[in-house]
Computed example of a mutant assay.
Amino acid sequence: MTAAVLAAALATGGWLVAHGARDHAPPPQPSRAEAFPAPGEPLLAPGRGERLVPPLPAAPPTRVRIPAIQVDAPLMPLGLLPDRTLAGPPEGDKNLAGWYAGGTPPGSAGTAVVAGHVDTDSGPAVFYNLGALKKGHEVEVARADGRTAVFVIDAIEVYARADFPSAKVYGASRRAEIRLITCGGGFSQEAGAYLGNVVVYAHLAGVRRPPQIAQRAGPGG
């Protein structure tokens, strides 16, 4: 699926803005200091002195880990609903996230999308603390090929539902990038739903390989 079609299909985060908060403290929201310096900043470019890590061959992800907020969750493939919005993980498992299987696998060249609930009827869920992350924190994605793709966070932003920047969030990238998405932006008791989304932007900064792969693989393998 092309970036343009993906952006249209996932225009507002779909299910992510349809589920409401429950009887617990509101999830943390990212501060302005964790956003991009300018609201209209384009897709990410390698920073000065940044070590470029070659993208990996495609392989399905199996698990996402975010040490800074104690996330360690399995990943399931997600597709699109009939209305072309992103299907979500079932709410019965609070420690479950999903990746958009019709797009880029995490670690490969392009923009991978990983989504998780902020809460469910029974309390906080897997991405409840996503808004507490900081620039420079790491996101680890274990893959079916045995490699672990290590991403470094570039920014965390929160968007109102009506102003969700689809092209910026889902747009194409030459390097390996990932977006983590959950509900945020405040909660409407009247509507019973969150008003927007929290989005984490990160780029591939390292790869960990099992010993047998590391022995036979070169720097880009």
Rank of each mutant, 00 (worst) to 15 (best):
Pro55Ser: 09
Ala115Thr: 04
Leu80Ala: 03
Ala73Ser: 15
Ala101Lys: 10
Val141Arg: 06
Ala97Ile: 06
Thr62Gly: 00
Leu130Tyr: 05
Arg84Pro: 10
Thr111Val: 09
Gly98Asp: 08
Pro82Asp: 11
Ala112Met: 01
Arg51Asp: 02
Gly110Leu: 06
Leu78Trp: 09
Leu80Asn: 05
Gly116Ala: 10
Gly88Met: 08
Arg147Asn: 07
Val141Cys: 08
Asp72Ala: 04
Ile66Lys: 04
Arg63Trp: 00
Gly110Asp: 07
Ser122Glu: 15
Val64Trp: 04
Gly131Arg: 02
Ala58Arg: 13
Val141Ala: 07
Gly110Trp: 04
Pro60Glu: 13
Arg63Leu: 04
Pro77Gly: 14
Pro60Thr: 10
Gly136Cys: 03
Gly103Ala: 11
Pro89Ser: 13
Ser122Asp: 15
Gly131Ile: 07
Asn95Tyr: 01
Ser108Leu: 11
Pro54Met: 12
Val141Leu: 10
Pro82Phe: 08
Gly123Asp: 01
Leu133Thr: 15
Val71Leu: 08
Asn129Thr: 06
Leu52Lys: 13
Glu138Ala: 12
Pro77Ser: 14
Gln70Asp: 10
Asn95Gln: 14
Glu138Gly: 02
Pro82Ala: 12
Gly79Leu: 13
Ala87Met: 12
Tyr100Lys: 06
Thr62Gln: 05
Gly102Ile: 04
Asp121Ile: 12
Pro82Asn: 11
Ala142Phe: 00
Val71Glu: 02
Ala97Gly: 13
Ala97Trp: 02
Pro55Tyr: 04
Pro57Asn: 10
Pro54Asn: 13
Ala58Gln: 12
Thr111Pro: 04
Leu52Asn: 03
Asp119Ala: 05
Asp145Thr: 05
Val141Asp: 05
Ile66Phe: 03
Arg51Val: 07
Leu81Lys: 15
Pro61Val: 01
Arg147Met: 10
Pro61Asp: 03
Lys135Ser: 10
Asn129Ala: 14
Ala142Glu: 13
Asn95His: 09
Ile69Ala: 11
His137Phe: 11
Ser122Met: 10
Pro55Asp: 08
Tyr128Met: 05
Ile66Gln: 03
Val64Pro: 05
Thr62Asp: 03
Thr120Ser: 14
Asp72Gln: 06
Asp119Ser: 11
Gly146Glu: 10
Ala142His: 09
Lys134Thr: 06
Phe127Lys: 01
